[in-house]
Nucleic acid binder design. Structure first.
Lengths: 143, 143
DNA sequence: TCTTAAATATGATTTTTATCATGAAATATT
DNA sequence: AATATTTCATGATAAAAATCATATTTAAGA
């Protein structure tokens, strides 16, 4: 459902949500290490996210990546849309082009409602809310 | 969530459920064409499924693939377990090894229950039941 | 204005997944 | 027994995804 890249991206953004701010930018190297993702690889993903305004960055000395307040209010699904694309999230489980509510594929009725629920959650939950869950100890981000 | 291979496998098995029986075996070529999957590729998948007793086959003239009655009573998830492996179906959405009910990752609580529901459905629904859905016109299998 | 520290852009390499090809083994028919 | 038809086993190739490398641009500070 999620690509490797998306998972890495979520981890990185969450890390920024927890540890960065406009006044406290973080260098790629210091993001890659704690979230345990290859530096050059996460660098590329961060670039994409930055270009699409999911996260913020400034270059040069004292530069780095960070999350502005408005960045933090975005729904989690925005990350996935950029990295994996809309299609991957919503396409039929059997990849049948012609599958839809009127002409459902055999798996459609079984999976559809759970799928909807998942998407709705990802739509509603903001990056900031996820970060708060971690801070409150309701969830964890090991390795 | 599902690999390409798994999707192909489900389509093939469903096709067999609808059109084959012990007395009416079907040759690979006549499976590949209607489900629109490359012949040599589906052949390999069918071999795997056959070896693991998800489907049945006999070789030589008049041979082919088919579903025995007991094959048809298996849950759909068996196909996915063979082709994708158990791990792919159940692993944490962020691929965090340490994620579990006690120490949930940030996405865990959001997604876990829907995920469970999906797995339960795939566990309970048999191949035969899916086929019946199609026969009744409750679902379709285009291309 | 020069140097340095950072992101950015681009592309190369590696690994994984998907696809294709071929020969060996098995069985039914003659 | 010989032959033809089919699955089965194995491995080769191609495509896509993941990972790595490098040169360019930007901004801060001396």
């Amino acid at each position: 459902m999620l690509s490797n890249s998306s998972k890495y991206a979520v981890k990185a953004v969450l890390f920024l949500a927890l540890h960065s701010s406009e006044e406290n930018k973080i260098v790629v190297k210091d993001i890659a290490a704690p979230i345990n993702v290859p530096l050059a690889y996460i660098a590329k993903l961060l670039q994409e996210l930055s270009k699409e305004n999911i996260i913020s960055s400034t270059r040069g000395p004292k530069g780095g990546f960070y999350l502005s307040d408005s960045n933090k209010e975005q729904p989690v699904i925005n990350i996935l849309k950029i990295i994996d694309g809309e299609k991957r999230l919503t396409s039929c489980m059997l990849s049948l082009e012609k599958c839809n509510e009127e002409k459902p594929c055999p798996l459609h009725n079984i999976l559809s409602s759970s799928r909807q629920t998942i998407l709705k959650s990802l739509q509603e939950k903001t990056i900031n809310e996820l970060a708060l869950d971690i801070e409150k100890g309701n969830s964890f981000l090991p390795l």
